[in-house]
Design a protein around this nucleic acid. Structure first.
Lengths: 391, 391
DNA sequence: CATGTTTGTTAGTAAACCTTACGAACGAAA
DNA sequence: TTTCGTTCGTAAGGTTTACTAACAAACATG
């Protein structure tokens, strides 16, 4: 007995549709597809794009003329390679036509800002001391820095991206950021009103993981651990950032590690990851150990022990996450002199020994190559994604 | 300096398009949207559907006539409630027209099968002892059970859903299932060839989490822990199942818990979650404790201690996952006499005490209400989703 | 120099949804 | 009882989209 008349199998595309689709949505999708293809590969002809996207040359031509009308795409002369047939007209995103403004509010004492190119390169950067400002004063400081950075842009600004510490919801409201003294701060809406530019606000670790994905050649499934004054994580699954039911995904700083107590944390619990791993705690421990050491060699060994133990603790926390999500790629962001060595070696070893070897055999853990600009670049990715659908 | 001529903000729909879209894809999306709306609410008129989906009455009528042509939708007379205007013709999914066949291969010794209605109700169930069969013999047993269940269907079969233990990839190949002695077993393709029906094979815990989502009223973000001969998890984020980079997401059974060793596990490590929590280990520990106890009260207390400790261990493993994903809903599946009591109480308490209270204040942990049919029903969800885009 | 190839454009077609309009069927008020 | 307004489902025509087919332009190669 078979299902005669049963419908054909629904494609992935149509699984759980939640909204109606209209013909004009097709246009937007394909327009963005072309733009994205061009953004990623650069320097292609209309015919190349047609082959790559599966659209016809006719449709690509039409979309390109629309994009050229918006000054987003430009022609760059003809291809030089000697080939049979009519020579191709090369196209590219008009990378000089727009710039992106980014802010990184995650520094404990200093806010950073920069103008970036569409490729995520930092063109000029600025900074402003928070000077202990909190609440409305902190907002004013941010607004002042933003105005400074905007003034330094030398091309029309595509949008403003901001990486903020704390819990940030989808609308760019900072639900809770203790360091800045913000609760339910509608940062995105306020700055958008102030500047008239499209603004995107996201959590700093989420911004960082986007940067690593777009510019760091990372895979579609990726966990980034950001170690600074606090410890946070950004998580990407299937190329999409995970925000969590209450927008607090990645908040692993105050998860307790292990079954032996551990140091007391500011939050009141004992053995939080942050109490093991934050930069202040590590530098203090290293400082104390160095002072107490009899010889330089003793100091060296004590430092290595401290970092190894911190790395082990990170591995213990990450192991269940790696196992549950079957992650293969983990990236660390933070001071390399602390993270890039005994610490990360201990983390990866702990991860391997605490999870199924067969599944984590090809697990990689590495430092980000984005350095200190990672949040700025990630915030730029948000703007590219929101304004162009590209990243 | 603002971005004059910058394009409008791209909608969520167009973020990172990966494929071209054609007009016919619109049709499929909207067709499925209508079908899904009807599946979930049932008994609606064309005009109701138009209001709910945002499509026009004209389009809905057209789609409905197509669906009626495939016998997927039927008219059920006119609405009786006295209202002004022409009375509405009520529609519903033709729930009696098709049935679904499901298999649950996750039992350690016994395979289960059932015929289900489109609503996920078990209409008739069968079973077959595995009798230690492994490899090709195990496949033959599965095929035999499948033939039995198919023979008991009383309506055309929409498709076959199978929940298998082990690691199952997107194509329904069982990459590794020790209990069944399978490695790279193309179960889905083979059974599809054998029966001529659409077949879907997924991991048993992933099937379970889908059942909980579709029939258990669970939210879009959900972690289900399935405790049996082994321990596995199914993870749903944003309503989508997570498979992991190597299709091994949810394999938390062999993640080490805590920083004190713990019992030796079959995998060679010490203190794996499975060594604390699996049904064989719990029943044995309880049996031993009961035998050693002087009084019934002592036995009672010893059992409670064992279950509490197991629950605590589960909480320790889940805490980083809950923190990293900001999960609020956790469901347990397995023998209620073991899980539903001291164990789950200890788990939820451990979770609360080891994660940020503010974020996990509304964390809920509960037993599934799906009972032993959870995998069968989840496998049916896979079929509904694949064949109708509905679930 | 003829031939084949590649590019980008023009013209016409098919599919999908929309808007507008209409008859049918009902309740409520005159 | 009749009229009016409402709601339902359908019909006709228009718009948007991408496709196919055909073509001129420009180049390499034999």
């Amino acid at each position: 007995m078979t299902a005669t008349g049963a419908p054909r199998t629904i494609q992935d595309r149509a699984l759980r549709p939640t909204t109606k689709v209209l013909p004009e949505h097709i246009r937007l999708n394909n327009r963005t597809l072309v733009l994205q293809t061009l953004y990623r590969t650069g320097l292609q002809s209309r015919a190349d794009l047609a082959r790559e996207t599966g659209l016809t040359r006719v449709t690509v031509s039409d979309l390109i003329s629309e994009l050229m009308g918006e000054n987003l795409v430009i022609e760059l002369g003809q291809r030089q390679e000697p080939r049979p047939g009519k020579p191709a007209t090369l196209l590219d995103i008009n990378r000089a036509a727009f710039q992106i403004v980014s802010l990184d509010l995650s520094g404990h004492t200093r806010l950073r800002g920069a103008v970036l190119s569409l490729d995520g390169a930092v063109l000029s950067s600025s900074g402003l001391d928070l000077a202990g400002a909190r609440g409305e004063a902190a907002f004013d400081t941010v607004a002042e820095l933003l105005a400074q950075v905007i003034a330094r842009a030398t091309a029309p600004i595509l949008g403003v991206g901001i990486g903020s510490p704390g819990i940030v919801d989808r609308a760019g409201v900072v639900r809770n950021a203790p360091n800045l003294g913000w609760r339910d701060q509608p940062l995105q809406a306020r700055l958008q009103g102030l500047t008239g530019l499209p603004v995107r606000v996201v959590n700093d670790a989420n911004a960082a993981v986007l940067a690593e994905h777009s510019f760091g050649g990372a895979d579609h499934d990726l966990l980034l651990v950001k170690v600074g004054h606090g410890v946070g994580a950004g998580l990407l699954i299937g190329g999409r950032a995970i925000f969590g039911e209450r927008f607090a995904a990645g908040e692993i700083g105050h998860v307790v590690v292990g079954t032996d107590d551990g140091p007391l944390c500011a939050c009141g619990k004992s053995g939080c990851l942050e109490a093991w791993l934050s930069v202040p705690r590590l530098t203090k421990a290293i400082h104390d150990a160095t002072a107490a050491a009899a010889t330089p060699m003793d100091a060296e060994r004590a430092i290595s022990d401290i970092l190894t133990e911190a790395g082990r603790r990170l591995g213990i926390i990450l192991a269940p996450v790696v196992g549950a999500l079957n992650l293969l790629e983990i990236v660390l962001s933070g001071p390399p002199e602390l993270l890039d060595g005994a610490l990360s070696a201990a983390t990866v070893e702990t991860l391997r020994s605490r999870t199924m070897a067969t599944e984590t055999g090809d697990l990689t853990l590495r430092m980000t190559a984005q350095g200190e600009d990672i949040v700025l670049r990630g915030a730029a990715v948000m703007v590219l994604s929101a304004q162009l659908g590209v990243s």
